[in-house]
Design a protein around this nucleic acid. Structure first.
Length: 141
DNA sequence: GCCAACGTTGGC
DNA sequence: GCCAACGTTGGC
């Protein structure tokens, strides 16, 4: 089981939008960045990810599960672009803000901190447990 | 709204 | 293949 992080502008696609899709999940489409696409190609069904709000919110707000492995992005005919499907698992009891993540030395190496523009990124098991603890949820959820 | 960081494009 | 110009993202 691997861990990931998905970044979204809440005004475009928010955690509430994701929750509204329920168990059916939703394509994580629209990614036009090779690095982000390559990470999605590495994902397997059942992998977990954090759902992060960028822009004004700037916080990890929920946990998602990969509900379909990489497949062609339905929003383009361009065959270079693949995406996965994700479904909401649980909100964090308390959102973990970027500001708080930046105060945590053990999280200083996160792509979220080091490369703020990468919209899909891997998370280590240690980072996963740390943020789950900060967010007040069970890391095994 | 501004700007830094980064990715992409295209001329040479 | 290099690099300048440009566009986009996201933090502040």
């Amino acid at each position: 089981m691997k861990y990931w992080l998905f970044k979204s502008e809440p005004s475009v696609w928010s955690w509430d939008d994701q929750v509204a899709r329920g168990a059916a999940g939703e394509e994580w489409d629209g990614v036009r960045n090779y690095q982000a696409r390559n990470f999605m190609r590495e994902m397997a069904m059942g992998d977990r990810g954090f759902f992060y709000h960028s822009q004004s919110a700037r916080a990890v707000v929920g946990v998602v599960e990969i509900s379909a492995a990489a497949h062609p992005d339905s929003t383009t005919q361009d065959e270079r672009w693949d995406c996965v499907d994700i479904r909401a698992v649980t909100p964090l009891a308390a959102p973990v803000t970027l500001a708080k993540i930046k105060t945590e030395p053990s999280l200083a190496e996160m792509a979220l901190v080091r490369n703020s523009r990468l919209s899909v990124q891997p998370v280590t098991p240690e980072e996963w447990r740390r943020i789950c603890a900060m967010g007040g949820i069970d890391p095994e959820i």
